[in-house]
């Protein structure tokens, strides 16, 4: 029995990656849930919005790198991030003006907007591939680790190493800051409250003098910011590849629905529920169990419940279970 090593292994392979991935999903799900709450449809183009925002950031990062700009130990991408966000805001506002607004004026039903967002998905996906190609792009620089496994081993004398990647640290810290800012905005500012009012009761918001076009504009700006940050963090942590962002759509939708669509707190909780289910169910537990079990009982196999290729299946099964027991999601929906 060796609890200390087991805990370190658990932190290294399950907790830290789970928290980082959960933060990325939560940021993505927040964007989906805001659009659902305010514009009242599920935006299939959200994954590709993340890709486009991240792409703009990648391009700016390369430009800065070519100028020799850097943030020292931190990735240059953080410097480029505001430009990526600005690009995404411009893009979404342009899309809203040229595409979505027409259907709002026509009072089209939300499901029509879902179909429209499928068209936008195609276009965003095409534009991303057109500009940056379909391949993996590396844009990470700076210090790789906050704590590397080797340093940890020599410092503590344990067998098991603990590594904490810079990207994971940045992901977690950024996510906390962004979420805190978002909640402050929604609950404390006039504009944020008007968004919640509009989501709660559109007619009454109108009668109170809240301008729907302004609410929609602010929503797209926030969604662009969230999507770009989520996309860049995911790209830094894993890698930037346009197609993976499209695939993130399922876990992101699952997170938003598990938490209760339209509820920002739910989106965050959902992100972590989905991330931890994926990581724990597809992790090979042998590494941890060897420290906890007597040698005679040591497992032969990898003790992996499902192969990592089934991670999407895991998000989906969790979603199904939650919906069966609590049809409205963990938190009641609708209170953007």
């Amino acid at each position: 029995m060796d609890f200390l090593n087991a805990i370190v292994a658990l932190a290294n392979y399950v907790l830290i990656p789970g928290i980082a991935y959960g933060s990325q999903l939560a940021l993505g799900a927040l964007g989906v849930t805001l659009v659902y709450g305010i514009l009242r449809f599920s935006n299939f183009a959200h994954g590709d919005t993340m890709a486009l925002g991240a792409m703009a950031t990648v391009l700016m990062t390369w430009l800065f790198q070519s100028w020799g700009l850097s943030l020292g130990p931190l990735p240059t991408a953080l410097l480029a991030l505001p430009f990526g966000i600005l690009f995404a805001i411009g893009l979404l506002l342009f899309t809203d003006r040229t595409v979505y607004k027409f259907y709002r004026v026509k009072k089209a039903k939300p499901v029509i907007l879902v179909i429209v967002s499928l068209g936008i998905t195609f276009i965003y996906n095409g534009v991303t591939r057109f500009i940056i190609g379909a391949d993996d792009q590396n844009f990470f620089d700076g210090e790789r680790f906050i704590i590397s496994a080797r340093e940890f081993k020599t410092a503590t004398g344990l067998d098991e190493g603990l590594s904490f990647k810079t990207t994971q640290g940045i992901t977690i810290i950024t996510a906390i800051i962004v979420v805190a800012l978002l909640f402050w905005f929604l609950n404390r500012t006039r504009a944020g409250k008007s968004m919640r009012a509009y989501s709660d009761n559109e007619d009454l918001a109108l009668l109170s003098g809240i301008n729907p076009e302004r609410v929609v504009m602010i929503t797209w700006m926030i969604v662009a910011t969230l999507a770009t940050i989520a996309g860049v963090l995911y790209g830094l942590d894993k890698s930037f590849k346009p197609f993976t962002y499209f695939q993130l759509l399922l876990p992101i939708f699952a997170s938003a629905i598990v938490g209760g669509l339209g509820n920002p707190i739910g989106a965050i909780a959902g992100g972590f529920v989905i991330a931890f289910s994926e990581v724990t169910i597809t992790y090979a537990w042998k590494k941890i169990l060897v420290y906890l079990m007597p040698e005679s009982l040591e497992p032969n196999g990898l003790v992996q419940l499902l192969s990592t290729d089934y991670k999407f299946a895991v998000s989906f099964v969790i979603l199904l279970i939650v919906l069966l027991f609590k049809p409205t999601g963990l938190f009641k929906g609708q209170s953007v």
Binding site: Y36, R40, S42, V105, K107, P110, V111, S199, D200
Partner: peptide
């Protein structure tokens, strides 16, 4: 053409709090 064909799928559309058709 802008109707929902009776669709009431809450996983993609949000009927709650939606506005009625107030003439412009």
């Amino acid at each position: 053409p802008y109707g929902d064909r009776g669709n009431k799928d809450i996983s993609i559309t949000n009927p709650k709090g939606m506005g009625s058709e107030i003439p412009t």
